[in-house]
């Protein structure tokens, strides 16, 4: 009987087959919702009400691109995608630049009270953004700020604590000797930051970019409160949820088109993201 249990490599084959089977099943279950949505987005609302999306697998004649044609030729709907982009890009870039510089200063420039400043910034991680919505709205009202800039600022504010935390950790992971050597060579803080720290922190910046972009791109609540008539795609979809079975013609393509940008970003930065994971700096 022992003969059956080889060491690693020969390790009992049958359970491994079973494991692989179960894992394939799980992977399928994970893909089915997205696949179902994809097919649904190519079916009319009538068909949606009548039968399940899988019927299209044996009646492909049901499929139509009219939902997409409708969506893409509708200026308002297309505009929501544009709004989402206009919200998410600055709402990612601004906090990342601020978090990078602040994280660097907190990790590498010695000054009095550095630790206290760092801790107070990180402790703001406790604050859920819901806690700030109403007063921030009021504040923006008094300084006559609304629409895009208001959303940018709000996203920036609530992206910063995590951003500073991550970037600080990343910079702190750079060997001290590198930075000291540069100082001895006479490099100023600006050039140390730009030429040494930044390139080394790229995996961190990429990971932060993925987080922040995905978050701001997909956000619903902040947009509901601050966006005004700058409706992003999430809000457009939310408005149609109450009439789900007719709204599906917009919801289907909307959800799918809305997922494209974060996925592209993820694939673009995947390598950096993996590096960051491997070093364990994301914890």
């Amino acid at each position: 009987m022992k003969q059956d249990h080889g060491v690693e490599g020969t390790a009992s084959r049958r359970p491994r087959r079973l494991t692989e089977f179960v894992l394939v099943l799980i992977a399928l279950v994970w893909m089915i919702p997205g696949f179902g949505l994809l097919i649904t987005s190519f079916r009319s609302a009538d068909e949606y009400a009548r039968s399940g999306w899988w019927t299209a697998l044996y009646r492909p004649g049901e499929l139509t691109i009219s939902n997409y044609v409708e969506f893409l030729s509708n200026g308002n709907l297309l505009g929501t995608l544009g709004s989402t982009l206009l919200i998410a890009v600055p709402a990612t870039l601004i906090p990342i630049s601020l978090a990078t510089t602040a994280g660097y200063a907190l990790a590498w420039i010695p000054f009095k009270g550095r630790k206290a400043v760092y801790l107070s910034i990180v402790s703001l991680l406790v604050v859920p953004f819901q806690l700030a919505l109403l007063p921030a709205l009021e504040l923006f009202g008094t300084i006559k700020l609304s629409g895009l800039p208001a959303i940018w600022l709000f996203h920036t504010a609530f992206g910063l604590p995590l951003g500073v935390f991550l970037m600080h950790n990343f910079f702190a992971g750079i060997p001290k000797s590198i930075i000291e050597a540069a100082r001895i060579d006479g490099a100023g803080e600006g050039s140390i930051f730009a030429n040494l720290a930044l390139p080394n922190a790229l995996p961190g910046i990429a990971s932060l970019a993925i987080f922040q972009f995905t978050w701001t791109w997909n956000d619903l609540l902040v947009a509901l409160v601050f966006a005004g008539n700058r409706t992003p795609i999430t809000v457009a979809i939310q408005q149609r949820l109450n009439d789900f079975s007719t709204g599906i013609e917009v919801i289907g393509p909307g959800v799918l088109l809305g997922a494209v940008a974060p996925l592209l970003l993820f694939f673009a930065f995947q390598r950096h993201f993996e590096t960051a994971m491997k070093t364990g700096a994301l914890h």
């Binding site: 995905t214 997909n218 619903l220 999430t234 809305g258 997922a259 993820f266």
Partner: peptide, 8 residues
């Protein structure tokens, strides 16, 4: 799915 919005 992490890339998909929570609402979606």
């Amino acid at each position: 799915p992490v890339a998909v919005s929570a609402m979606s």
